[in-house]
């Protein structure tokens, strides 16, 4: 399996704060690799170090075979970058933005015509070609940004929270476009804080406080979760929360509809019985069962359980 990005002990400090505190990455080619993490977990900083916008405080990065930031200029020709904030020119039209990006990437006249026509068709921009980018909707902006980032047929696409403020249908379409790009051999690294998007990635790194808290394929992560998930139904929620708050082993409680989902440390002896005993006072008739973990459980377990074992976790 060929590798697009390798990072070893990659770290970046801003003042006294380590935004990225030493992470290892191996991003395989022609796959979608996801960064899942809360705000401030180091996703953007990592991506910016990958495209040479920030110099690492420590560690090494190799992108498409070139060390960053030393050979970032070379890499930039093979790389497409979609910034978190819309960064095309709002006072230029859709077509003018695409034209400018083509010229900046040094495409010839014929290539420019052909590429722009193709991206307009592919990302449904034909109807808004003459519209200024500042007047576009969230979904339209995002399609334009993706079209602009792929004009020079990059080998690697770095997408920093591309689906922020985009409606669900546009998000679905966007992900279809990403899979189509991967089908043609593009490597995609995408950061997100949506679980459903993380689930669609080939591989996933869960970032927390500048570290990789978990890494792997989404379904493996769910299978190998370092926690036990217990679901409780048919209860009085307020009473149940009070009862469970006293149980030291409970790491997280989340309500899903008319059920409570409780995370306990891996290796807890007879977790269902423990919970049932705790609920005996207020909810003697509660239905308690062990269930398989979801990606959200993995996320919670990876980002909240580590180092917080002593502190009882409140519901999200």
């Amino acid at each position: 399996m060929s590798v697009a990005i390798t990072a070893r002990d990659l770290a970046r400090r801003f003042g006294a704060k380590w935004a990225v505190a030493g992470i290892d990455l191996d991003v395989p080619r022609a796959q979608i690799y996801g960064f899942l993490g809360p705000n401030g977990s180091g996703k953007s900083t990592t991506i910016r170090m990958l495209c040479g916008l920030l110099v690492p405080t420590r560690g090494t990065v190799t992108v498409l075979g070139h060390p960053a930031p030393k050979e970032s200029e070379v890499v930039r020709r093979k790389l497409g970058y979609m910034t978190q904030r819309f960064s095309l020119w709002e006072d230029l039209t859709v077509r003018e933005n695409l034209e400018f990006m083509c010229r900046v990437y040094g495409l010839g006249r014929a290539a420019i015509r052909e590429r722009i026509a193709d991206r307009m068709r592919r990302y449904d921009l034909e109807g808004i070609a003459a519209q200024r980018a500042g007047t576009l909707s969230g979904g339209q902006r995002q399609r334009l940004a993706l079209g602009a980032a792929t004009l020079h047929d990059p080998e690697l696409l770095l997408l920093d929270e591309p689906t922020n403020a985009v409606d669900p249908q546009s998000r679905r379409d966007f992900w279809e476009s990403l899979f189509e790009l991967v089908g043609r051999g593009t490597t995609i690294l995408v950061s997100t804080h949506y679980m459903d998007e993380a689930e669609r990635c080939h591989r996933l790194a869960i970032l927390d406080a500048g570290r990789v808290a978990a890494e792997g394929e989404p379904k493996d992560l769910a299978r190998d979760i370092d926690a036990v998930v217990v679901e409780i139904g048919e209860i009085d929620f307020a009473a149940a929360r009070r009862s469970l708050a006293g149980v030291g082993a409970v790491r997280s409680i989340a309500q899903l509809g008319n059920r409570l989902r409780v995370l306990l440390p891996h290796g807890t002896a007879e977790p269902a019985r423990l919970i049932r005993a705790a609920l005996a006072d207020g909810n003697p008739g509660a239905r308690v069962e062990l269930v398989g973990a979801s990606l959200e459980d993995v996320f919670v377990a990876a980002t909240r359980l580590r180092g917080e074992a002593a502190r009882p976790e409140r519901a999200a």
């Binding site: 495209c51 916008l53 200029e73 930039r76 910034t83 960064s87 095309l88 020119w89 900046v104 990437y105």
Partner: peptide, 13 residues
């Protein structure tokens, strides 16, 4: 200020 620079400097310009 408008955020264009972050994109511009990742191009070959």
């Amino acid at each position: 200020e408008r955020g264009n620079l972050e994109l511009l400097i990742t191009t070959p310009v």
